[in-house]
Computed example of a mutant assay.
Amino acid sequence: MKKLAVTDKGACMACRSCELACAGAFYKNDDITLSCIQIGEKDRKTTVSFCVQCGKCAKACESGAITQNAQGVYLINKAACVNCGKCLDACPFKVVVKAADKPAPTKCIACGICVKACPAEILYIKQDEAASA
């Protein structure tokens, strides 16, 4: 299975470069609330939230617009999406996002744009061998 991973969440500098890169790639916008990776804080510690490709969004999707590809990545078919918002509610990490002016939400597709943007070099794309065989 291909997915985003973090080597050391404690090493995150909360610079938000990953969020800016993601929002820019998907929405051509610097609104970090539209990023599929979210940097936050809990108990005075930086948190890094991202899609773990669990499939809960796909199970909640009433139109079947979210499917898993051969690499284990869940993708949203924007043409099939009915914009019900159930995938946003189902995501345990709240990283399925939607801009008000767009017809469908977005989620992490393990593209690596955030990885390239991270100055701390703590993000990487993980490829489980068992899923790719």
Rank of each mutant, 00 (worst) to 15 (best):
R44M: 13
A79V: 13
A60K: 07
L75I: 14
L20T: 09
C22H: 01
C36N: 13
C22Q: 01
G40P: 12
V48Y: 10
V73Q: 02
C51K: 00
K56D: 14
N29S: 15
Y74T: 09
C36H: 10
G64S: 05
A65D: 02
T47K: 07
L75E: 12
I66Y: 02
N29F: 07
G64R: 04
T46P: 14
A65I: 03
C51R: 02
C57F: 11
A25K: 10
A70G: 05
N29R: 12
R44I: 09
D31V: 05
F26P: 03
T33N: 08
N77L: 08
C18D: 07
F50H: 09
S63I: 04
N77H: 10
E19M: 02
Q68F: 05
A21W: 01
A25D: 15
S63R: 02
I39F: 04
K59C: 01
T67F: 05
Y27G: 06
A79M: 10
A60Y: 07
K45Q: 12
K28R: 14
I32W: 00
K28N: 14
G64A: 06
I76F: 12
I37M: 05
T46Y: 11
T33S: 10
I37E: 07
D31A: 06
E41Q: 15
A58R: 08
C57G: 13
E19F: 00
A80P: 08
Q71E: 13
K59P: 00
L75N: 13
G40D: 08
A23H: 00
E41C: 15
A70E: 13
Q68I: 11
C54P: 06
G40I: 11
K56M: 13
A79D: 15
C61G: 04
I37Y: 04
C61E: 06
L75G: 02
Y74R: 04
N77D: 15
L34G: 03
E19I: 00
C61L: 04
Y74Q: 05
Q38W: 09
C54R: 06
G24K: 00
C54G: 06
C51T: 03
A58W: 08
C22K: 00
R44Q: 15
G64W: 06
A80W: 09
T47C: 11
K78G: 13
V48H: 11
V52R: 12
T46K: 14
G40R: 06
S49P: 01
N69D: 10
R44N: 15
T33A: 08
K28C: 07
S63V: 02
K45D: 06
N69L: 00
I39Q: 10
Y74D: 06
Q53M: 09
D30R: 02
I76W: 10
L34D: 02
A70P: 00
D31G: 06
C54S: 08
S49Y: 10
T46H: 15
V73L: 02
N77A: 12
